[in-house]
Write a protein that binds this DNA or RNA. Structure first.
Lengths: 348, 348
DNA sequence: CTGTTAGCGCATTCAA
DNA sequence: TTGAATGCGCTAACAG
């Protein structure tokens, strides 16, 4: 089958060690170097990473576990992560959890059996138990987008609460008082964004009817249904804050099917994503997450740990099950989102 | 560090062979089975796939090379592919070529060094040379979306020409005669779709000014610029066929910024993607590719080859470089796309 | 700078 | 059914 260093040895008369040294960038006599290179290209030799990994116990592979791969948000991050890892000589091994905690658990196990050197995780659930095997294995871990409260695992994310506060504040500044939210209290990011909305209402001493607060999943259906219901109210909101991309999709769809117009009848601001907003007419004003920075930062953090050989397990968490302490993760990095202006907000 | 079967041996007093047999589903005495299971859970033992792979020379990993991962089309396919492979006990290892043939070549090498059992490829370029190492290695290969002419490698794709023919025919049936295209002659799928457009014009004996045929890359910029130019013509088209998702994005953006309205001023039909169309107002009429079927079919094809231990290299192609013969790939599977109705086409 | 040797964790002969 | 021995392809001492 495939050529091995033994074949190179036959062809060159050199020893295995010399060839290995060549492969790993050691110094050797130019003539030998040339011989080896000739043999390699003749034999179409490729390093067998399994054998190498068995010895070094490092695979140069980084596991990436995402809650849902069929998702603009996720795959943009994957793209940037991939660029970073590549540059550092690592390759990502991507696992899709399909929003299923069981699959997520299995993914972690799987990646461990593949001896990945580290892991990036965008968790599906809200508990860190599924990561315990990885912590036991002592490999570096970095979370993205969603932190796991009290787990002590580093996380890179945006400041959801502050950003959604700003978004709603923009509606407020444009004169809106009847401000609704279509969001989520089931996803952790949704909760944080809801907090921002509520905080602004509280600070500005605005009260809204409970029907203005539509909570469910971050899903197209929820967005669609909620917008329909909002527009049917006797006193519909003049502005709606939409908590994530799927919700935006559903809500805009419902609005398009209704007699209401944006922004004359109802103003909109949404959280997540950028490209897509160009499709809607008028263009949506959005809170855009710095995806590039998120990925770069997470990759850098993980690579740094990889270099230092630092383990995620700090010794305090050697047990499995629920964490009790509410210790603040030391490495939590919170990036600011920015508002990108469209024409979906009217003055009132 | 991590437990090995040696540790299990110590703990149970059984031999390595017995434990190995257990791990691989062999028959053994219930009491021994119980002992081993106890030891495994105590030690948190996980099979080291690197060591196993070194012996079996099978990794249970399937390499997936995509031309661009940050792309709704791609990542939806990835999702479905992942489900299929998972079910069959394989895990996908995804590599992003970033539309760069060099990176693509490197990706193939990389995956080979990881000893993947097979590969799914959505190629960035149009020549098959970069796959030669994989063919030499004798692993099964399946292309998706874009075939490599005369390479003899199986491919699962949609019938681009026929589908775009139908799309343009729909415009024709609605009474349109001034039909423009914003498409690509640089991507293979673009070419095929262009063919469908031209074929319909020819059959219906319609002639259009050359300015109606906008060819470039499958990019947002191309779509945006082309739509602007089309609308500026003295006699603008009454209908536009948009060749892929990025082009749709750009074109709709340009249209939204213009005084023209869809469908009263200009009718639209686009190729690719589904979800997104809901954002635009009116909803776009689209040619939708059967992503689920594409992925299922490609996965099935590859898994079948994996079972049969069939190699992609049929012996006729043992050389590298350009292929000369125009042999039809035996396993080419062409699936039909379907038109999903929106409200973006007016009668004229 | 180069060669010899040992062993990574596992599956797989062959004997028992 | 189980056990002992061998080797997968490579790296990492160590000695030369």
């Amino acid at each position: 089958m495939a050529a091995t260093i033994k074949d190179i040895k036959e062809l060159t008369g050199l020893s295995l060690a010399t060839i290995s040294k060549y492969l790993n960038g050691g110094n050797l006599r130019p003539e030998n170097r040339a011989k080896i290179e000739k043999a390699i290209s003749e034999l179409h030799y490729e390093v067998n990473e399994m054998a190498r990994g068995l010895v070094t116990s490092r695979s140069k592979v980084i596991g990436v576990v995402v809650f849902d791969i069929a998702n603009v948000f996720t795959c943009t991050l994957l793209k940037y992560l991939g660029e970073n890892f590549r540059r550092a000589g690592y390759a990502p091994m991507i696992c899709d959890s399909q929003n299923d905690p069981e699959l997520e658990t299995e993914n972690v196990r799987f990646l461990l059996s593949k001896k990945v050197d580290g892991m990036i995780v965008i968790p599906a659930g809200q508990t860190a138990a599924f990561l315990q095997p990885a912590r036991n294995a002592g490999i570096p871990l970095v979370l993205m987008d969603r932190s796991l409260k009290g787990s002590g695992i580093d996380c890179v994310k945006v400041n959801n609460t502050a950003s959604s506060y700003q978004a709603v504040e923009k509606l407020y500044d444009y004169g809106h008082r009847r401000i609704a939210i279509i969001g989520s209290d089931l996803e952790i990011t949704g909760k944080e964004r809801l907090d921002g909305y509520l905080k602004l209402l509280e600070e500005k001493k605005i009260s809204v009817p409970p029907q203005y607060i539509k909570l469910g999943h971050h899903s197209i259906e929820h967005g669609y249904k909620s917008m329909q219901e909002l527009l049917k109210l006797e006193e519909p909101p003049t502005a709606v804050f939409m908590g994530n991309f799927e919700i935006i999709l559903g809500a805009v769809m419902a609005l398009n099917e209704s007699p209401f117009e944006c922004p004359s009848d109802v103003s909109l601001i949404g959280f997540d994503d950028l490209i897509i907003s160009n499709l809607s007419n008028p263009r949506l004003t959005l809170v855009v997450q710095p995806l590039r920075e998120l990925a770069d930062s997470a990759a850098e953090l993980l690579l740094k740990k990889l270099e230092k050989g630092e383990s995620q397990d700090n010794g305090k968490n050697g047990f499995s099950g629920e964490e009790s302490s509410a210790e603040l993760p030391e490495g939590e990095r919170i990036l600011p989102a920015r508002i990108v202006e469209g024409e979906s907000i009217a003055r009132v």
